[in-house]
Every structure is written in structure tokens, then in C-alpha cells.
Computed example of a mutant assay.
Amino acid sequence: MRRRSLLIAVPAGLVTLSACGDDGSDSGQASSSEASPSASAGQSAPPPPKIVDGPLPAITAGTKFDEKPTIAKGSGKPSDQLAVRTVIAGGGARVAENDYVQANYLGQVWDSAKVFDNSYDRKAPLVIQLAAGSIIDGWRYALAGKKAGSRVELAVPPTWGYGSQGNAQAGIKGTDTLVFVVDIQDVFNAKSSAKGTDVAQDDIDLPKVGTNTDGKAPEITVPKGDAPKDLVSNYVIEGDGAELAAEDTVLVQYKGVLWDTGKEFDSSYSRSALTSFSLQQVVKGWSQGLTGKKVGSRVLIVVPPALGYGDSPPADSGIKKDSTLVFSVDILAKM
């Protein structure tokens, strides 16, 4: 059985892993009055659709990649299968099932051309996993195999959208076919790493972290001597993305070792699965250590006991009471 991340500082039942609505803040998720492509709760998975070429309405304005598009009203009867067209072919990484994609998108109803959601106006792309239960199946099947840098148009019938129940809050009926334009900005998976400039690690009293960016776990070398009493948060690789705010949700790769022994106690690399969480739901050392750091970076965080698990470490974690924890964290995206 794969071990769950040890970082979550709240009961597991309070942690949600699928994208959902928010208050319209700069988080990359849809506001509460809109319908993001997140899967509906309790929705059973239909059989895979047949991928067809059309029909698909024309994109009449905003025709460049990552430019907000205008889509014509659907003409005639839409397909009862999944219509997909690559409008612009990108040359980046290829999307696979269970990958995370970072994308801007616009969605509207086929019959009325009513726009029910778009990320362009929020100026915050969506980051979401292409996995069953996380996203509507129309996106899962349409985007698999596409490359980063691509613009994809798709028409999703109810079967692979919001089902017969629709989404009343967004004005989507259970009979509505939905049309999306999706600009795939980036793709993340278990092989993803930080991207940026190496930063000198010249403090001999602090751990050294490897700078490899091949998707493998970096080596962490802990020095002999006493652990620092205060939180340490230093760039190992400095990216050029947005700075994280204290309330952000992030997608990361990470590895944690004990200061006293250098022994690994937790790692997303060993699970071959990325981890996402709100900075308000993790141990204080992570929340404080990552706030203000840039997306794309690798960060060394040394967490003293008071900002970690103190005298109450997780059971069977290998962490003793009052342990100082050392982490390498790759900040892949802000969700």
C-alpha cells in the first residue's frame, strides 16, 4: 500500500484533492458561480467515447494560443460522441492519463453559445489532474496524447460532461453539449522537476541538496553538528514563476530526511506521484517556508520541532519526538 504524505496537518477527511470552486480569488480555480471542468461528486464513470472530428463551431476571435477565444454558436445537431480538434499543435511534453495539466480554457453551451466559465478573465490558469473523479471525462479523453503548447477544441456531450443532472448553478442542463477551447500551457507528472537557476549553497552548517532536474530525487547531505534552532528556507534552484501566498494551493515534488540520521522518512518520488495541498493545511514549517517562494523553484527547508511535529510525530513515520526535519521541495505549479 502506498503511504500517504505525512505533511498534512489536518485530519485526512478535511483534505480535498479535486479542483473545486472558490471565491474568485487568484487561485486558478473557478468561482462559485461558474462550472470548472472538475468531476461532479458521485458521478459514475461512463464507457470511453469514440473520438470524432466534429462537428465543432468556429473560433471567430482570439485565435492565438493563450488568447481568450470567441466561439460561434453550434450549428445543427452535435455529435453524441466526443468531438476533438487540435487547433494549434504544440511541441511540448505529451499529456498522459493521471498527469496534471496547466491550462487556460473557455467553456460554453452548444445550443445557446452561453459562456459558463473561462479562466482567461481570472488571469489564472487551471491546474488539474487528468484522472477519473478529478475532472470531467470529456477532458480526460480529449487531452490525453496532446502536447503542451497546443490549443484543443472539444465538444462534450452530457455523457462525458456533467451527466443527466447537468449543473444548475452554471445554467447547464442535463441535455447540453458543452464546447471548450483549452490552451495547454504545461504538463506535470512524476518525472517533473524544478526549472531555474542554481543558487550557491555556501553555508557549511546547512544541508546540501542536489541540483539534478531529471525527475529523480535529489540527494540531501546533512552536515555534522547541531541543527539550526530557527526555520531555514533557501533556494537551491530559483525559478521565475509567481511568488506563493500563504493561502495558495501548490503542486510539488519533495523529499524529507531526518537531521540526526539523514534517513529518508517521506518522499513523493518514492510514491511516483506528485502531491498537491493548500499551504494552510500543512505543518507550519512548510507553510512559512514556502510562502514568498517562486513557482519553478527547488527549496531547502529545515524545520525545527516547534514548526514540525514537536512531541507528537505521526505514528509509524520513523520520526522521533522533537526531530528536526530537512526537506527538498520542487514547486511545480500554483493551483
Score class of each variant (00 low, 15 high):
168 A>I: 09
169 Q>K: 03
169 Q>S: 05
170 A>W: 13
170 A>L: 08
176 D>T: 07
177 T>G: 02
179 V>Q: 09
179 V>E: 11
181 V>C: 09
183 D>A: 01
184 I>K: 04
186 D>Q: 15
187 V>T: 13
187 V>C: 04
189 N>A: 10
189 N>C: 11
190 A>S: 11
194 A>K: 07
195 K>L: 13
197 T>N: 11
199 V>N: 13
199 V>R: 15
199 V>S: 13
201 Q>S: 10
201 Q>V: 14
203 D>P: 07
203 D>S: 09
206 L>T: 14
207 P>M: 05
208 K>L: 06
208 K>P: 01
209 V>D: 09
210 G>T: 15
210 G>W: 11
211 T>L: 03
211 T>D: 01
212 N>Q: 14
212 N>H: 08
213 T>C: 07
214 D>S: 12
214 D>G: 08
215 G>V: 03
217 A>C: 12
218 P>W: 02
218 P>N: 09
222 V>S: 03
224 K>H: 08
225 G>T: 06
225 G>Q: 11
227 A>C: 09
227 A>S: 10
227 A>I: 08
227 A>G: 06
227 A>D: 04
228 P>A: 10
228 P>F: 06
229 K>H: 12
230 D>S: 10
230 D>H: 07
232 V>Q: 12
233 S>F: 01
233 S>N: 02
234 N>Q: 15
235 Y>E: 07
235 Y>N: 12
236 V>L: 10
236 V>A: 14
237 I>F: 09
238 E>M: 15
240 D>I: 04
241 G>Y: 09
241 G>E: 08
242 A>T: 10
243 E>G: 11
243 E>S: 12
243 E>V: 14
244 L>P: 01
248 D>V: 08
250 V>A: 04
252 V>H: 02
252 V>I: 14
252 V>T: 12
253 Q>A: 07
254 Y>P: 03
254 Y>V: 01
255 K>I: 12
256 G>R: 03
257 V>E: 14
258 L>A: 14
258 L>M: 14
259 W>M: 09
261 T>Q: 00
261 T>H: 00
262 G>W: 04
264 E>I: 06
265 F>V: 03
265 F>Q: 01
266 D>N: 08
266 D>A: 12
266 D>H: 06
267 S>I: 02
269 Y>I: 05
270 S>L: 03
271 R>A: 02
271 R>E: 03
272 S>C: 00
272 S>T: 11
272 S>F: 00
273 A>F: 13
274 L>C: 10
276 S>G: 13
278 S>P: 05
278 S>E: 08
279 L>W: 01
280 Q>P: 06
281 Q>M: 12
282 V>K: 02
282 V>E: 09
283 V>Q: 10
283 V>R: 06
283 V>T: 02
284 K>E: 15
284 K>M: 10
284 K>I: 01
285 G>V: 05
285 G>A: 05
285 G>K: 06
286 W>H: 09
287 S>T: 08
287 S>F: 02
287 S>K: 06
289 G>Q: 01
289 G>E: 00
290 L>C: 00
290 L>E: 00
291 T>V: 01
291 T>R: 02
292 G>N: 02
294 K>E: 03
295 V>L: 09
295 V>K: 05
